[in-house]
Amino acid sequence: MIVRTLQECEQSERRVVAETWESTRMILKEDQMGFSFHITTIYKGTDTHIHYKNHLESVYCMSGEGEIEVVGGKRYPIKPGTLYVLDKHDEHYLRAHKKGDMVMACVFNPPLTGAETHDKDGVYPLVD
């Protein structure tokens, strides 16, 4: 059994901070669950380009508001209770409104190893 608290993970190398977001990776590839689980904060007033060419992701908004814009497609509002699934490696922009941060629960398949950050194209590398 694995038991961890968000607070413990936030005070470890499992917390990764970038310019527009931070992600606390509570379950990683090393845990051998077949997925990774993260609590990610998108900083207020930011715009993040993301394109997970190597991963599928499900995201559930727990707090805050913003939007996701699919490149070449639609915009969808995000608020608490919204789930979106990047089931087609959708290239997108994730924006948090200026009122406050968005806090999201995220699941990745295949699982992340822990230290990944977006490259210049918004991609996480696939690590064996």
Rank of each mutant, 00 (worst) to 15 (best):
M62P: 03
F35L: 10
A105N: 03
P80V: 00
G64S: 05
D31G: 01
T82D: 00
T46K: 13
A105W: 05
D101W: 10
V107H: 01
K88N: 15
P111I: 02
Y93L: 13
Y124G: 06
A115P: 14
K88V: 11
T117D: 03
E30H: 12
V107W: 02
Y84M: 14
E91M: 07
L112E: 01
K120R: 11
E30Y: 08
K120Y: 10
A115T: 15
K29I: 04
L86S: 12
K74V: 14
E67L: 05
D119E: 03
N109H: 11
G81I: 00
T82P: 00
G72F: 03
H51V: 03
I39L: 12
Q32E: 14
K120W: 07
P111L: 02
G66P: 01
D47V: 12
R95G: 11
P77K: 07
Y124F: 15
D31M: 02
E116G: 03
T113R: 09
F35A: 05
V71D: 13
F35P: 02
Y93P: 08
H89F: 14
Y124Q: 09
G122V: 04
Y93S: 08
T46N: 10
G81A: 01
K29W: 10
L86V: 11
D90Y: 11
A96E: 00
Y52N: 13
L56H: 12
K53S: 15
V70E: 09
D119L: 07
C61N: 02
H55S: 04
F37Y: 12
E30P: 04
G114E: 08
L86Q: 11
I39W: 10
D119M: 05
G45S: 13
A105H: 06
Q32M: 09
V107T: 08
M62A: 07
G64T: 04
T46S: 12
K53L: 13
P80F: 00
N54E: 15
T46C: 09
T113A: 13
D101Q: 08
G45K: 14
